[in-house]
């Protein structure tokens, strides 16, 4: 690890100011990606701005038709939340499948969403539920937030403060874990709303994406059989030592079926 200065602001504006005033400084939420990167000397930020003292970023609030989860809320808290389990059990289930117990205790929803790892779980839940990303300066719809491999709509100095999820009629997540890392080799989140169904896929490509043909099929028949015959194109899907693109494409269909199954059970 290379030397850096370390800041623990207790106000969001202070954090934003540090972030913009020190060039190349980085935010630390749970540190699940950043700390290993620093340990391997792959990144050399001059300053780390730790968000852990910002109490307003933690916790889950019931907004009736929405659930708002503070950016610094760890996965384990979301997984165990009675509120999330009651209103959107698919989201609680997603949180319970991330990493391992240590990762779920430290890793945060804001960190995961801001990092936008192509195989992370939360982006599928956020996009699948059509959530709103609340930042220090504005609100961004999920459909406009995830821009591809580790890229988001966040601008320099902008800090995610919360994610606001609309409560669906039904939702489910199915994940095929990469054998070693336990990231999603393919993860599919499905959510049924009064006005239609959303399907979001993580792990398969360079970033989370929706599958309109599956959404259309499920909107008219919310049943696993509705997607069983829908194959997705292998173009743009990832091939690596664990899975080639055609296998990932196949898994999208299988996981979509299982996600619908989970949503119905």
């Amino acid at each position: 690890m290379k030397p850096f200065s370390y800041h623990q602001p207790d106000q969001i504006p202070d954090a934003a100011r540090l972030l913009t005033s020190i060039e190349d400084s980085k935010l630390v939420a749970g540190g699940m990606t950043l700390i290993p990167t620093l340990k391997q000397r792959l990144a050399n930020p001059p300053a780390l701005v730790d968000l852990s003292k910002l109490g307003s970023l933690k916790g889950i609030t019931d907004g009736g038709a929405t659930i708002t989860i503070g950016a610094m809320t760890p996965h384990a808290v979301v997984a165990a939340s009675k509120l999330v389990q009651a209103k959107t059990p698919g989201l609680a289930a997603l949180a319970s499948m991330i990493g391992d117990p240590a990762v779920r205790s430290r890793g945060t929803i804001g960190g995961s969403v801001a990092n936008n790892d192509p195989a992370a779980d939360y982006p599928a839940g956020v996009l699948g539920l059509g959530a709103t990303i609340v930042t220090s300066v504005r609100e961004i719809a999920a459909d406009k937030f995830f821009l591809g491999l580790f890229e988001t709509a966040l601008v320099p100095g902008e800090i995610i403060t919360a994610i606001r999820f609309p409560v669906p009629l039904k939702a489910g997540y199915a994940k095929f874990k990469a054998p070693a890392s336990r990231y999603a080799l393919v993860g599919v989140f499905v959510a049924k709303f009064a006005d239609g169904v959303r399907v979001a896929v993580t792990g398969a490509g360079s970033g989370v994406f929706r599958v309109p043909p599956m959404e259309a099929a499920l909107s008219s028949n919310f049943d696993p059989s509705a997607v069983a015959a829908i194959k997705i194109d292998t173009d743009g899907l990832t091939s690596d030592i664990h899975a080639e693109a055609d296998y990932r494409a196949h898994l999208v269909t299988v996981m979509a079926k299982r996600a619908v199954d989970a949503a119905l059970s």
Binding site: P224, A228, A243, Y247
Partner: peptide, 20 residues
């Protein structure tokens, strides 16, 4: 015998795998 390898073997196997 990873999932990827087994799935690929089944794609090439003599009998088609029945869809659910």
């Amino acid at each position: 015998a990873t999932p990827n390898r087994i799935w690929r073997l089944l794609q090439n196997a003599s009998l088609p795998v029945a869809a659910e």
